[in-house]
């Protein structure tokens, strides 16, 4: 009777000991992973933050104008209202009308 008690106790003890060490290790691994992930996130956030900042700096009107000058444009200015088409059908419609007008003008000059 007494021996069985001891055996049971020791078994429980060992099981718990192993369980505890396993759980503790798992917890440590999880903690480490979280910490590492946090570091990675932090670096990514920092990089993203700086990249976003760089993007807004490089696309600021002053910088864009510098680049435009490099490729031959003299001025940074918005496109004229007459050149803005809200959809492709408007654009094709107007282009067709313009080409028709040009054809008519050509015919008139030929007749003259």
């Amino acid at each position: 009777m007494f021996r069985t008690k001891i055996i049971i106790s020791i078994t429980i003890f060992i099981t718990f000991l192993i369980l505890t060490s396993v759980i503790k290790n798992k917890t440590r691994i999880i903690e480490k992973k979280i910490l590492n992930l946090n570091k990675v996130i932090s670096i990514k956030e920092k990089n993203f933050n700086e990249a976003e900042f760089d993007f807004y700096y490089l696309t600021s009107p002053a910088e864009l104008e510098k680049k435009l000058r490099l490729i031959g444009f003299n001025d940074y200015q918005p496109i004229k209202y007459s050149n803005i088409y809200l959809n492709i059908s408007d654009l094709t419609k107007i282009k067709n009308k313009i080409s028709n007008l040009n054809n008519l003008n050509d015919k008139k000059t030929e007749n003259k």
């Binding site: 106790s9 429980i12 003890f13 718990f16 000991l17 369980l19 505890t20 759980i23 503790k24």
Partner: peptide
């Protein structure tokens, strides 16, 4: 001991 380990777990 049982209590100790139980608490730890």
């Amino acid at each position: 001991l049982f209590f100790f380990f139980f608490s730890l777990i």
